[in-house]
Design a binder for these strands. Structure first.
Lengths: 331, 331
DNA sequence: TTGTAAGCGTTATCAA
DNA sequence: TTGATAACGCTTACAA
């Protein structure tokens, strides 16, 4: 891409203004002129410089997204939903992964300078940068964190489903529980889930830390836990941790369900295919991303100016891992 | 971000050229002047507009990446390696997912207009667009496809490892095979793998199609296959398909290994944790991404101008799924 | 050591 | 219906 609007104008024998009008389809253009212009555009294979357009329009036509990493399907799914809708709306997507990275502050600020709006997961961006962005009016939507003034927040319902899940486990007759994946920051999804189950299970459940919320760390943490005590049910903060717990149980020769119940969260693809299939809370990940993109669009175009705080509903999906269900799948 | 270099200059009582020099640290600036400028920058909280900088510098300081989707860890891992190194080099990353999308041509062209260089997976970008990009000299690196004139190509070794794998299976004494995940385009990784195993196994192996290379489609395809015939070994085009095959085998009551051998490709995290653990070919996915970013940097900065075609080495990882290995893990 | 001014490639206003 | 021309926000010769 090297040819500019000037060369097109010259070739077509018109001014650059006319070329611009023709291409954008706004101002009036005589149809004979239009044809000359289009011909020149065609011949020169002209594409307007994105930089020139953006500078003049005063917008990037691009969105950013900040996530910790892409381990596991959760962030990936949200990202795909986000990118798809963003593309529909004519916006590109710039990504920023913060996990294990130094100078996150600068990276986020740089990213913010390249986009019209930002989707930020939980607390992946430093509070002061967030404050700054809110301050300057940058359109922002946060996913998986508590509401914040001056920005949209979007999340799936956690506490009510947590109670539902806890209730179901009580119905199975369990009395001793552990929550695998202790919350790291307050107010995010993992924390809300923990608060929810604890509200029902009270002293009968104890939070156990994992490193990250991955299969590996879930496996390690579960192994350590199960070697020194035997809760009857392991409520995991997400499906990946739960898959890790399943592996640990197998390694220790514990039957799931039977010796141990395990539950997850999110309903990632692997949850259905796990052995045993995971009881979990389904969260509409793709939709989270899609909605975030639309919300951002509203904010950017000015179709809306007051922040929205939305909570999507979830669904308890009961499968095999949480215990024996007598009248299941009659033949 | 609303304050411009003019306001800073005015406040500091200097010209915009001096502000620019100070901030970029190139031209000479008296230290007293520098301080005045920095003070003004501080007070006004000035950040140079990315658009202005890019337009003047004639570069985006951004890279693009084109992939089909992000299902499964392969693309994700490459993406993470890519983004990490790109960030190190001061470049942002724009993504484009093409799966199930219409107007891919336009999307790729638009993306190309926003970046200094592009990583493209296999054949995810239409050939004519690719030709056009090569034509105009856009720095390009392709991952997982056959060498192409005018662009870097980068891939992991496939055929030699395929032979190695096939040989190992022959050593197990198998005589009837199936290759799950028939190649869709010629020249990509999946095709090379197929060519490699077929070179060794000849007529003893037959290619079986899956939809996409996912756990679900692998499961479906394996189920259909195993219901009508019983190869002794299932060579899968990647680990996800292999995981699906494992599920299908379990569903049919086939023991793996024993009744059936299954192998994968890539060595994703789940391969190690699968039951049985997957025999597979390890491919350095993260490094693929990292190298692509560096290669692009060389091309963009002009440190190199002739295309490179690099093949990274892989490793056969023998685990349990390919058959019984007598003297394994002595206690 | 500093400032002036010419780009960089568009869009859009205002006259003609 | 068209064309000058002023933004948009910066970098960087070139002069001073």
């Amino acid at each position: 891409m090297d040819v500019t609007i000037y060369e097109v104008a010259q070739r077509a024998g018109v001014s650059i203004a006319t070329v611009s009008r023709t291409l954008r389809g706004n101002g009036p253009v005589a149809s004979k002129t239009r044809e000359k212009v289009l011909k020149a555009v065609e011949e020169l294979n002209f594409t307007p410089s994105r930089l020139g357009v953006s500078l003049a329009e005063g917008r990037h036509a691009a969105n950013g997204i900040v996530f910790p990493s892409l381990s596991g399907p959760y962030y990936t799914e949200v990202l795909l939903g986000y990118e798809e809708v963003a593309a529909e709306l004519g916006r590109s997507v710039l990504i920023l992964s913060t996990a294990g990275r130094t100078r996150v502050r600068d990276l986020v600020k740089d990213l913010a300078g390249r986009v019209d709006g930002l989707l930020i997961f939980g607390h992946t961006a430093p509070d002061d940068v967030v404050a700054e962005l809110v301050q300057v009016g940058m359109p922002l939507v946060f996913v998986s964190r508590e509401p914040l003034a001056g920005a949209d927040t979007l999340r799936s319902e956690n506490t009510a489903s947590a109670r539902l899940l806890a209730g179901h486990l009580l119905d199975h007759g369990y009395e001793h529980f552990a929550y695998l994946g202790a919350p790291l920051v307050s107010g995010d999804d993992v924390d809300e889930r923990w608060q929810g189950v604890r509200a029902v299970l009270g002293g009968a459940i104890e939070a156990v830390a994992t490193g990250q919320y991955t299969v590996e760390d879930g496996y390690d943490a579960a192994l350590r836990l199960l070697r020194r005590q035997r809760p009857q049910a392991l409520v995991c903060c997400d499906d990946e941790v739960a898959l890790g717990a399943l592996l640990a149980a197998e390694e220790l020769g514990l039957a799931v369900p039977g010796d141990l119940a395990v539950t997850g969260w999110d309903d990632i693809m692997a949850a259905r295919h796990a052995r045993p299939a995971l009881t979990t809370i389904r969260q509409p990940m793709r939709e989270l991303g899609a909605r975030a993109a639309r919300a951002l669009d509203e904010l950017i175009t000015g179709a809306r100016s007051t922040p929205n705080h939305l909570t999507l509903t979830t669904e308890l999906v009961i499968r095999a891992s949480c215990g024996i269900h007598p009248q299941e799948e009659p033949p």
